[in-house]
Amino acid sequence: MNRERMVNAALLTLLLGVPLWAWATDEPFTITLATRVAILALAGVGLNIALGLGGLVSLGHAAFFGIGGYAMGILASHAQSYTPLMESPFLLEGTKSMPVIWLVALLASALAALVIGALSLRTSGVYFIMITLAFGQMLYFFSISWPAYGGEDGLSIYMRNGFPGLNTLDPIQFFAICFACLAAALWFNARLVRSPFGLALNAARQSPERVETVGLGTFRLRFVAFVISGAITGLAGALFADLNRFVSPNMFSWQMSGEIMVFVILGGVGRLYGPVAGAALFITLEHVLGGISPFWHVWLGFLLLLVVLFARGGIVGLLAGRRVAHD
């Protein structure tokens, strides 16, 4: 077992252990914090596939996070008001079922990534950053100006959505759902890295010319990675909305894109468990420092500066040392 695996196992144990301990000592707020970590880490896992593996610096992942959130908000709001989404040409009703909402969130955000990716992946470098940012902002302003689903005020959902066989209102059970989603995404990410696709994508980040010279298309590789990445972040958005029982245009804001990127950079770009470490540290700082001063972001900024300057591998890199290529 190499050091990175030990660090990963420790992170997972911590993320599982803290809420279990909070459950045993009846501290539901701590469980909610851990749930936030799991969900935001999931959003980070999504971004890390584009950013870490594909080298695609997307500053617009809030677009997918928001689409996932609104997929949940729109479906659940129709279900709670007993009004169908549409009646013709066929009847489409809302739903309070998590699995259905997740599926819709995954598909909707994948579709959005398909369109955004097809256009923005024709550019690179700073232009790619700007165009993804622009798409995110477009959706942000669209959600503000769309009165049907709350506009600026957002949408409140009174009851958390249901999952067959579980009581989702119980914090520890909802945490378990989110943790399972995160674990599934991490497993998939690990598989992806080892796969032929992952090998080619990773090479395309390091040497695009080489990949083209062996007959593979870099655009196609990045495009598929971007869609997968967007879909995973979209799923996180649906869970995030369910956690808060609230969706608002803020989920689309560029600050949200920035936060997701901060999780990845803090934790370690391209490291499998980087987003988990990053989101955990972020939420811990927000909770601890935020209690002391409302200006805790100053300290976050300082920390981020230190990581970028002195620990390029982020927290995981600091603890586990240099990345070892897989055997």
């Binding site: 796969s195 696709f197 080619a200 090479a203 080489r210 007959g215 290529a325």
Partner: peptide, 26 residues
């Protein structure tokens, strides 16, 4: 080995299109 495998993958990809998402490259 990963670099050499990339070449083998490209030669194979001429027929298969996109490299597989699952499965182990090595």
């Amino acid at each position: 080995l990963q670099n050499a495998t990339l070449g083998a993958l490209g030669a194979k990809g001429a027929r298969a299109g996109l490299p597989g998402l699952l499965g182990d490259a090595l």
